[in-house]
Nucleic acid binder design. Structure first.
Lengths: 137, 137
DNA sequence: GTTGACCTTTGAGTTTACTCAAAGGTTTAT
DNA sequence: ATAAACCTTTGAGTAAACTCAAAGGTCAAC
């Protein structure tokens, strides 16, 4: 698959794909006779991983570190790899906990709201919710 | 509380606080006689919300939209506010789902790893894991 | 065989989110 | 009363992550 097709499948630009390759996120692809990049499903999977990591707030540098776990395991001891993995997992767990707080706040707001055609100002439960000072939304 | 103290409590710079105010994220604070910004615990809560939202990958623009739910409820119908809230909650739920996939992948890696002093290359379970093509880490 | 849709590289431009510097006013400690 | 440590504004500078433009090569279709 050429760069245009992969870009379309991932809904990103070809520039972004070349940018990620240049900055060491996406592994180098094969080239055909005329120098075109030829991508495999493995590259697509890798890109999906990168894009998913981005949506949950990892920087490209952090994503590189996540991807590097795989590489490092060839050079480091099992113990070191395990420690790095657990450390990254903790960051992921912390993020999940944050999001669950958001989910709870938004659920409270949604549940409190009658959903009718009246102006939200008049919704007394919402006003009550606003008074609860552990909810900031 | 003056800007320096709030910045210290939040572990960010005073510049960032002024930047957020200027860009409509943090509500305006009171000023004392000499023009210094004076912040309340409410401002601190709002900032904590903003910072939490940032760690889970919301852009400042998206955070503004989250904060705007509160404002909009004075101008829109309960139904509109409810719809916006549910829409934002869905984004949060999607992010949680992504992170849970990461958590699972990292847990599999960690569990598979013996954690001993041997080179990770020799860890056969890791090699097996690498072959599983639905896990990209 | 040439038009249009691809692909290549290099290098410059843009957006987001800060971050710093300058020039000056205020407050606190000695 | 005079440093040091705060605060103010304005405006410029920076890093990350793209995004675009230029100049040119490749390839399928008419």
């Amino acid at each position: 698959m050429k760069i245009g097709e992969l870009a379309k499948r991932l809904d990103i630009s070809t520039d972004t794909l070349r940018y990620y390759e240049k900055h060491g996120l996406l592994s180098f692809s094969e080239r055909n006779e005329s120098g075109y990049r030829i991508y495999s499903p493995k590259h697509e999977k890798q890109m999906q991983f990168i894009l998913r990591a981005k949506t949950v707030g990892f920087s490209l540098k952090e994503i590189q570190e996540l991807l590097a776990i795989k590489v490092e395991k060839q050079q480091h001891s099992c113990g070191e790899v395990k420690q790095l993995t657990l450390q990254k997992r903790q960051i992921v767990r912390d993020k999940i906990a944050e999001l669950q707080r958001f989910e709870k706040s938004l659920s409270l707001l949604a549940d409190a709201c009658c959903g009718g055609p009246e102006l939200a100002t008049g919704c007394s439960i919402l006003t009550t919710l606003e008074a609860a000072d552990d909810i900031v939304i």
